[in-house]
Write a protein that binds this DNA or RNA. Structure first.
Lengths: 211, 211
DNA sequence: TAGATTGTTAATCGATTAACAATC
DNA sequence: TAGATTGTTAATCGATTAACAATC
C-alpha cells in the first residue's frame, strides 16, 4: 500500500469511527468542522484527531478547519470503501445466517458470494439469495473465483481445520467468530470477533461497579 | 467491588483470554505452568502475564510457577463466571436469533430470559425456547424481573430510543450491536460489538498488505 | 542446597495530550 | 489585518518489557 509509513493499530481502529461521524455530519448537511467541534461530538481530544488525520496527510486548512465532504472522501479512500472484497461465509448456522442477511456489508464494499456448510439439509439452499454449497466444493470454488475474505462461523471444534483449509486455498483474510485464536501464516490477516470475551468484559465491568 | 484498586482496561480485556487458555490447559490435564511457558502459548511476554496477574494478587509460587487449576479458579472468580446475570434480547432479527441460540452464554453465567420485538408476527413466538414479547410489555417485565443486561440487536434507526428505554427502566448493562455510539448515563455500562468497524479494519489491513 | 521462577521495581517504549509557530 | 485553527514538535502519561532480589 502506498499509504506512507507505519500507522499504529490504535489509529487504524479509530478510522471506522471517524468515517461514521463524518457520514453523519454529511447527512446533517454540515459543511465544515474544526477538530475542536469534532472532538466534542466524538468525546476524544482535538489533538488526537489532528494527530490521527496527519498520519495520512494534511486534510485541513489553518483558520478554517476541515471541509466535511472532502474529509469524508479522504477517510473513505483510506479505508477503501470504494474497493470491493469478495467474501464467503463458512458455516450456515445462526451467526452465518445473520451475516448473510446483513445488508450493510455490501454498502461498505464486502460482497458475500457464497456460503459453505457440511449439513446436507442446508446444502443447495439459499440465505438472502446466496447459495449454500458443500464444504467439499470450497477448493474448486476458490480456484474459479477470487476470494479475499472468509467469514468463519463454524462450530468451535472445527475452527482450526476450517481456517487451515481456507488459507491453504489462498484466502488471505479471515473474519473469525470462534473464541479460539488462529495461528496461521504471516501473510494471513485475521480479525477476531470474540463475542463471549466481550460479554465477559461487560459482566466484569458491571460487577466492578457493584451491580 | 472489593477487587483492590484501579485495573486498567487493557488488563481487563486480556482476562477472558487468560481464562480461555487456562481452560484449555485444564482440559489437557496440565497441572502447573510457568509464566514463560504460558507466554509462549499465548504469544505475549512472561513479564506481562506476571504483571497482569499481580493486579489481582500473587497466585504463583517462586521456583514452581502457577498451579493451573487454582489459577483457573482465581481468574474465574475475578471474571465472575460463577455469578449469574439476567439478560434480555431486544430485537428478534437474525442477530437476536443467533444470540438466543448461542449456548455458551449460559455456561458463562448469562441467562437470557426474554426477547422483545415490535413485529406482531414474531410476538408470542419462541426462539430456542425463549418467549418473544411485545416491546410495550418491556417496562412491566423489568419491574417484575431483575434484568442486568440488555442485548440490543435492533435496527440502527431505533437504537437510541431503545437504549434510552431500557436504561430508563433501570437496566445497567448494554451490549450494543448497532454501529451507533450510545451516550447514556455515567451509571450505565456499554460494551459495543461494532461488526462493520471490525470488517472495515480487516479490509484496511488486507489492502495495506497489498492484497 | 542449587535451580527455577515469582513478585516487584526500574527502564523503555508508544500513545496521548499540550503547546505553539505557521498560515489561511 | 486580526482571529481562528491547523500541522507539528515537545511533554506527559500509561502500558509494556526488562531486570533482579526474594523465596519456594
Amino acid at each position: 500500500m502506498p499509504e506512507e509509513k507505519k500507522i499504529s493499530m490504535a489509529v487504524i481502529r479509530r478510522l471506522p469511527r471517524y468515517f461514521r461521524y463524518l457520514h453523519d455530519l454529511l447527512k446533517l448537511d454540515i459543511k465544515r468542522i474544526s477538530s475542536r467541534e469534532l472532538s466534542e461530538r466524538m468525546c476524544i481530544t482535538a489533538s488526537q484527531i489532528r494527530q490521527d488525520l496527519n498520519c495520512f496527510g494534511g486534510f485541513g486548512q489553518q483558520g478554517y478547519g476541515y471541509n466535511v465532504e472532502s474529509l469524508y472522501n479522504e477517510i473513505s479512500r483510506i479505508l477503501g470503501v470504494d474497493k470491493r472484497f469478495t467474501c464467503i461465509i463458512v458455516g450456515a448456522g445462526n451467526m452465518g445466517t445473520a451475516l448473510a442477511n446483513y445488508e450493510n456489508f455490501k454498502k461498505r464494499g464486502f460482497d458475500i458470494v457464497a456460503i459453505f456448510d457440511v449439513d446436507p439439509a442446508k446444502i443447495g439452499g439459499k440465505i438472502n439469495g446466496i447459495d449454500i454449497y458443500s464444504m467439499d466444493t470450497l477448493e474448486d470454488f476458490v480456484k474459479q473465483h477470487k476470494v479475499d475474505i472468509a467469514m468463519l462461523t463454524v462450530p468451535n471444534r472445527t475452527i482450526t481445520e476450517v481456517a487451515e483449509k481456507v488459507t491453504s486455498v489462498g484466502i488471505k483474510g479471515i473474519w473469525n467468530f470462534s473464541p479460539h485464536e488462529l495461528r496461521l501464516g504471516e501473510d494471513v490477516v485475521v480479525e477476531n470477533v470474540h463475542l463471549s470475551d466481550s460479554l465477559m468484559v461487560l459482566g466484569y465491568r458491571l460487577r466492578s461497579k457493584g451491580y
